[in-house]
């Protein structure tokens, strides 16, 4: 019954990898896979964010819901998120979403007793789980390459003398599709790798000034002039934005076909920037995992398949088989 496989074997090459930035090449697959990965990274890879706030006291200038909203937007370190439960599927706390399997508790209590304005920041949040803390706090404690004096936390509100903020917050697992505060992606983009062919014979019919003029017609620096040979060379193919300007320019100069540019349909260059909730490289790995899980739940159930088998026999009878 098993059919032949039409599987592909994509290739990956990482060009640059930092904690919150990743650039890589994806080859030998199609745009549907590239786009599915991009969409999943933005909207379906889970992270942890503050989702419920109980204000115990607030005499600041901002109202309660304004502060609750700001708390929700603070990115939290979310390495745990993939292994956590969504509160709505958690049976350990049936739906109230406040147990250790599906939530992390935060407390904040700040009071200003001086004449100087006091900043309430992400540093003032006290987490019940040391692995789930505001991203900037985690970077500060690692102190790797960050200037400590520049790290002042994310400002939540400012207090003047006598004002106080006191609250309890529950952070939960969620996805960007539900609310953008759960998206681990700052930006995820991909582009087709361009393939640029210069017609050298035709190019040599151009004067030096015409060459310069033609090179300048591109809004991005794709082409350049070799200072010694005065030949037009491709400086940076990926700077090309598929704007067609150089092609139009060549036609306007009466030199159609001076350059041909194709988008390689099975070759993509990805740029991934993370909010810091998870590492950019982990974001890609998690996206593949989430996509696999999504595929797994759209497999037809056995009863659906059996119903089809019976249907098939019935059909065969009707056709006289």
């Amino acid at each position: 019954m098993d059919g032949v496989s039409y599987q592909r074997f994509p290739k990956v090459k990482i060009r640059e990898m930092k904690d919150d930035y990743l650039k890589f090449e994806l080859r030998e697959t199609d745009a549907s896979i590239a786009n599915a990965l991009r969409r999943v990274m933005i909207a379906e890879v889970p992270t942890i964010a503050i989702d419920l706030v109980e204000i115990e006291g607030n005499s600041s200038v901002l109202n309660d819901e304004f502060i609750a909203h700001r708390l929700g937007l603070i990115p939290l370190t979310s390495e745990r998120a993939m292994g956590m439960r969504f509160s709505r599927d958690c049976d350990a706390c049936d739906g109230d979403g406040q147990c250790e399997y599906c939530s992390v508790e935060f407390h904040l209590h700040v009071r200003c007793d001086t004449d100087q304005t006091l900043d309430v920041t992400s540093y003032d949040l006290r987490s019940s789980d040391p692995s789930v803390v505001p991203v900037d706090v985690a970077q500060h404690s690692e102190s790797t390459g960050y200037d400590a004096s520049e790290q002042r936390g994310i400002i939540i509100v400012k207090l003047r003398r006598g004002q106080e903020l006191r609250l309890r917050a529950i952070a939960r697992k969620g996805i960007g599709k539900d609310h953008a505060k759960w998206s681990p992606a700052a930006t995820v983009t991909f582009m087709y790798e361009p393939e640029i062919h210069i017609n050298e014979d035709l190019m040599e019919t151009l004067t030096l000034d015409e060459k310069r003029d033609w090179i300048e017609s591109s809004p991005t620096k794709v082409f350049g002039l070799d200072p010694n040979t005065h030949q037009v060379v491709v400086v940076d193919p990926e700077a090309y934005t598929y704007d067609d300007e150089v092609i139009k320019k060549a036609e306007a100069m009466g030199k159609p076909g001076l350059v041909e540019i194709y988008a390689k349909e099975d070759s993509f260059i990805f740029t991934v920037e993370s909010t810091g909730a998870i590492k950019a490289s982990q974001l890609v790995v998690n996206a593949i995992e989430v996509l696999k899980q999504k595929l797994d739940v759209v497999r037809p159930s056995e009863e659906t398949e059996e119903a089809d088998d019976q249907f098939g026999e019935l059909g065969a009878h009707m056709r006289g088989g």
């Binding site: 098993d2 059919g3 496989s5 039409y6 599987q7 592909r8 074997f9 994509p10 290739k11 990956v12 090459k13 990482i14 990898m17 890589f24 697959t29 896979i33 490289s281 890609v284 790995v285 593949i288 995992e289 996509l291 696999k292 595929l295 797994d296 759209v298 497999r299 037809p300």
Partner: peptide
Amino acid sequence: YNQAINDLDRELNHLKNAFEEEM
């Protein structure tokens, strides 16, 4: 339909391994 899901699943397994090796 089943074949398409199986092929995609295997492609993603391959991609995950390839990506992790590259990491």
